[in-house]
Design a binder for these strands. Structure first.
Lengths: 139, 139
DNA sequence: TTCCTTATTGCAAGTAGTTGCAATAAGTAT
DNA sequence: ATACTTATTGCAACTACTTGCAATAAGGAA
């Protein structure tokens, strides 16, 4: 069994299909463990799936993020990165050295709740990225 | 006096220069009032500055955001938008209809403080965008 | 004013990401 | 097994954005 198998039933229940391309992209994300840009996903996955094209990668990543199977996060410079859904969390990125740390979702949970009450919006538990200077770069 | 004049001294103090291109781009942002994508800024500014090129627009917007003269925000679909710095605020965007509302900076201020204490990072008061469904689209 | 330094621009060529549409193939039903 | 529906893919052309480098011009000094 390859490592995207666990998703097959969940996809079918919602009328979606599992394909070799999706399986391979899930495999790449799983192996990477962390964040990967669309380009990185394309390059790594193509090794196992030589026929794979860029539009398919972009569409698959968007599909996975839209349906909750992966998280998308904006990190510096307008770039989007993806990772498999695990614990919800947020990121702090140092503008100078690029060092990234994760922050538990609970830190923002009360704000989310407050905002939902005051605005009526139902918010995604999305992957927020905050920028600043890490302790080492503040001098 | 054109409307970027107020920035001239602040730029000179830091070794930067004011140029007709920068002036025109500031004018465009000022007139728009709200968010504008790089492409929109390019198209609108070019009417007044026919020689203007795309790389200049992208670099100018990045420059303005980097130095605190403008704010950059990621809104849906990986797009970056810019606006002139005024009050710090955040955005809530409806994934379905695109309706956007602003949220005061103070809502997130306590979280920022808490994060700065627990992580040691010095955070930018950045422009965070949260996604969700607005009251009308929740049915 | 004129000269000088160098920040900023424009050009040109590059990379990244998107879109429409016809062809393919996943999964269901027969 | 076979046929059918339609989600998904690949292709090709397009738009968005970036980068290196030489030319230009802003702003300070002589």
């Amino acid at each position: 069994m390859t490592c995207g198998s666990y998703l097959i039933d969940r996809l079918h229940q919602r009328g979606f299909r599992m394909t070799p391309q999706r399986m391979a992209i899930l495999h790449t994300l799983r192996r990477a463990g962390g964040h990967l840009s669309a380009t990185e996903v394309f390059e790594r996955t193509r090794r196992a799936q030589p026929g794979l094209t860029e539009p398919t990668v972009y569409r698959t990543l968007e599909f996975l993020a839209e349906n909750g199977y992966a998280l998308a996060a904006h990190i510096g410079g307008g770039k989007l990165v993806y990772e498999l859904t695990e614990e919800n969390h947020h990121h702090l990125i140092c503008k100078k050295c690029g060092k990234t740390i994760s922050v538990e979702y609970t830190v923002l949970a009360s704000v989310y709740e407050q905002l939902q009450l005051s605005t009526g919006y139902k918010l995604d538990s999305s992957h927020v990225t905050l920028f600043g200077l890490c302790p080492d770069c503040q001098t």
